[in-house]
Amino acid sequence: MTVIGAVCLPQLPPERFHDLVRTADEAGLAELWLWEDCFLGGGVATASAALAWSSRLRVGVGLLPVPLRNVALTAMELATLHRLFPGRVQIGVGHGVQDWMGQVGARVKSPMTLLREHVTALRGLLDGDRVTTAGRYVQLDGVALDWPPESFVPILVGASAPRTLELAATAGDGVILAGGTTPGQVRAARETLGDGQLVVYLHAATGADAAERLERERVRWSYPTLDDRAVAGDAAAITEQVRRWASAGADTVVLQPTPDDPDPEGFLRFVAGLSL
């Protein structure tokens, strides 16, 4: 069964976050997803706060950009979260936005090589192995976690291009697809991924000005059209439209509000009330 979640955009100031998390938890939202966008809130910090402030909410981060993080640190933080909040954490990794990586001096010549090395080493560390590797970008010498996760931790990979989707299928355990992904692209990704977990963001808006706000998103993301890239309307209309992405193979559809949504708490309550 496909899960419907919502993303809490990092464009909101951090001091708003507590009330948003409490709203999501109390409304019964299945999954709250977060972004680690430069140079806004940190993904691990916000995820840990959300998990601590809620009682049942599952929290995802999609995604952590690997050029910013030593793989041992990534493994330490993921293992800690999974031991503190077992069964409630989903975190993906990915290339990151290359312009941002360049701004901080972390851009590499081969993002694909870095991502593959990072995911491979991360898998071993989270499995409790002692890892030694001498890759182009990832070097570890007998590194093992003292407190590895107590159960298997899926590694999700942010992907859109065919080569990265293949990496997600072979080295990872699932994929995170960005907003603007059409049902046809989800179907193609599912064919590449096989049985792996598939999470897709979906632009969404409700209310009297929904169409106008989504049009601004179309311009912002340079989409030629909003057809098959966004959903709008009341609960019944959006639920009916989300079924298309679910039928295409999505395990989780994360509704992505517009940055200018006038009522972020209301959006979370709205999504919590949807059911396929």
Rank of each mutant, 00 (worst) to 15 (best):
D25F: 11
T80R: 01
P224K: 11
R16D: 14
A168W: 09
A211V: 12
Y201P: 01
V131R: 02
Q241W: 01
V271K: 03
F39K: 06
T170N: 12
A30L: 03
Q90I: 07
L64D: 03
I155P: 02
E15K: 11
R220S: 14
P262W: 08
E77V: 06
G60E: 06
G194L: 09
Q11K: 07
W221F: 15
Q90S: 15
A106P: 00
G94M: 04
A188G: 01
D146H: 00
R16Q: 14
P224Q: 09
D209R: 10
R83F: 02
V119T: 07
R56N: 14
W147I: 00
P86L: 08
L84F: 08
L167H: 05
L167D: 05
E117F: 01
E217H: 02
A27M: 04
L274T: 07
S222D: 15
G43D: 13
V93S: 08
E77M: 09
E265W: 01
E77Q: 14
T239N: 15
R163C: 07
Y201E: 09
P148D: 00
L29V: 07
A75C: 01
H18M: 08
T46P: 03
L32P: 03
R130M: 05
V157R: 03
R218W: 07
R216S: 13
R88T: 03
A134D: 14
P183H: 06
Y201T: 01
T133C: 13
A232R: 14
E31N: 03
T206G: 04
G60D: 03
S275T: 14
P224M: 11
D263F: 12
S247N: 15
P224F: 11
S247H: 14
Q98P: 06
T132A: 09
M1I: 11
R69I: 11
A161I: 05
G105R: 11
P183E: 06
I176H: 05
